[in-house]
Structures are given as C-alpha cells and as structure tokens.
Simulated assay, not measured.
Amino acid sequence: MLLICDSGSTKADWCLVDKDNKRTFFATCGMNPYNISLEAISQEIESVLMSSINPKDVHQLKFYGAGCSAEVKKKELKDLFSTYFTNAKIYIDHDLLGAARALCGKEKGLCAILGTGSNSCLYDGEDIRENVPALGYVLCDEGAGTNIGKLILRNYLRHLLPKDLEKEFATLYPGQESDFLNRLYKGSVPNYFLASFAKFVTDRKDNEYCRNLIKECFVSFFENQVVLYSDYTSYKINVVGSVGFICKDIFKEVALNYGQEVGKFIKAPLVDLVDFHFYLD
C-alpha cells in the first residue's frame, strides 16, 4: 500500500491507497520538525496512525511537510518513520514540492501557496528549479492570510475602516486595543492569530473595501515574489491554499494586469498529490 501525507504546522492530512486505488483519508496533528518534538510525533503516530492502519502493509511512504527542506530535518523524520514502517520505502520532502506536484503534475509551471502563509516556486515538471525565499509572516507572507489579517486588524485599530465594516468587525471580535496587542505580541501563535482575521475580509470579498484590500495583498505577492522568477510570464501560475482558492477571481484579475496566464486552483493538495503518485509516478 501507498501512504501519502501533506503536513502543515498545525494539521497533517493522510491518505492510504491500495493497489485498486481505494483511498482512506485521515488526519493527525502537524509534523513540522521545527515546531514539534520527535517524541510528540512518535506519540501521534502511535495514538492516531497505528489505530488507522497496519504499518506493515505500507510499502511506500511519501511525506511532504512544512519544515522539511533541510536535509538534517528530512533525516530526522525518515529515521523516526522507519522504526514504524519497517517494510516501506520512505520519501521525505518539503510541502512546497508536494504543492507543485499536486498543481502541475509533470508539467512546468509557476506554483503559489496562498493559505495561512505564502510561498512560491518555479517547477520544471520534476523538481523545484527556483524558489524566492518565503521568509515567514514577520518579513513577508505577501498575499496570505497573515498579510490580509494584519492589514484589516491594523486598519480597524486605527479606525480606518468604513463605519459599517468597523461595526461588524467590533461585533465579531470584541476587545480593546490592548487585548489584540497582548494576543499578538505575547501569544504563542501570532501568525495564526493574524490569519484568523482574514476570514472577515474573504467572506466579504464582494465588498469594495475588502476586495481592494485583497487585491493590494495579491499585488504585493506579484511584486515581491512572482516577478522575481526568470521569464515568469512564460509559465501559467497555479495556486493552492484557502485564500487563493476563495479569492481566485481577484487573483485572476491581478495576474492579468501582470500579463500572467493562470492555471489550476485547488484548496488543498492531498487528493491531487495522491493522483500524481498513483497515476504518474
């Protein structure tokens, strides 16, 4: 059997595939080796994975995860998984490559992740050829939930929102300025806190103010990531992630202004990643 995982920092989606392409889906906590200890990963494997599958039936494990670009982190996870999946060939790589394979298959293209955070790459049909460093939510995350959430929260706290939106925001997110700032600067997951406000904007993407804010973030994504790739207009740009998927009409509008042809939009990569490995690999 083939076991495939797409892991972010908070959640990992898994699919077990048999020879007849029967698929079983389940989820665990995220397994970013920078954010969670190997002991905690072991506990999750034993409490969740082992109750869902027989590890001896798995002959291939394809794991694509956030935090898995460095060889030392790949080895840490491979060594850990090999103690459970003793009959399996184990493959560990970065979630950006998984996104590219889910979006493009064996074709060349530009790939964008636009979810909680953002990332991008130029994919040659097999591997990542170029990658503009993502750099995280403090420095970058253009076009992502953290970017949109940061702008709407800033504008709310400075009383820059239209009055109707300010009233709606205050109703949904009650609190004083100090409450927001304490959560932001003293909380354990400030990036997810910021990204939580993006839903307010994307749920109102037909509102002129919200639409322009989303557009501003997508323009920033193009200016700071897309245009830095070699001959970027020679490739279609493909998008995975909840923000890009929900706001694809606005993304297409921005892409057109940059002379960029758009391709595929998917909310999450796992199903397409399973297809890639079952049919093309």
Rank of each mutant, 00 (worst) to 15 (best):
L2I: 10
L3Y: 06
C5K: 02
D6Y: 08
D13V: 08
D13E: 10
K19E: 14
R23T: 08
F26I: 02
G30S: 03
Y34V: 01
I36F: 03
S37G: 10
L38C: 03
S42Y: 03
S42L: 00
Q43Y: 07
I45K: 03
S47Y: 02
V48F: 06
L49A: 06
S51L: 11
N54F: 10
N54E: 12
P55N: 04
D57N: 13
D57K: 15
D57A: 14
V58D: 00
H59W: 03
Q60H: 13
Q60R: 13
L61N: 01
K62V: 02
F63I: 07
F63W: 02
Y64R: 15
Y64K: 11
S69Y: 10
E71R: 09
S82C: 06
Y84C: 13
Y84M: 12
Y84L: 07
N87E: 14
K89M: 13
D93N: 15
G105N: 05
K108V: 07
A112H: 05
A112F: 12
L114V: 06
L114G: 00
G115E: 03
T116L: 05
T116F: 02
N119K: 05
Y123H: 09
D124C: 04
E126F: 09
D127Q: 14
I128G: 06
A134V: 08
L135D: 00
V138E: 04
L139Q: 01
E142T: 08
E142N: 05
A144K: 04
G145L: 15
I148H: 05
I148V: 15
L151G: 06
L153F: 11
R158W: 11
R158M: 14
H159N: 15
L160S: 13
K163A: 11
K163T: 10
D164M: 10
D164W: 03
A170I: 01
P174R: 03
P174M: 05
G175S: 03
N182V: 09
N182I: 09
L184T: 08
G187H: 08
G187P: 06
G187A: 09
S188T: 08
F193C: 11
L194W: 10
L194V: 02
A195S: 15
F197A: 03
F200Y: 04
V201T: 09
D203S: 07
D203P: 06
R204Q: 08
D206A: 07
E208F: 13
C210T: 02
L213T: 00
E216T: 11
V219F: 13
V219E: 13
F222Y: 09
V227A: 11
D231T: 07
D231H: 14
K236T: 10
V239T: 09
S242N: 11
S242A: 09
V243M: 15
K248N: 15
D249M: 07
F251V: 03
V254A: 08
Q260A: 01
E261M: 12
V262F: 02
I266S: 07
H277W: 15
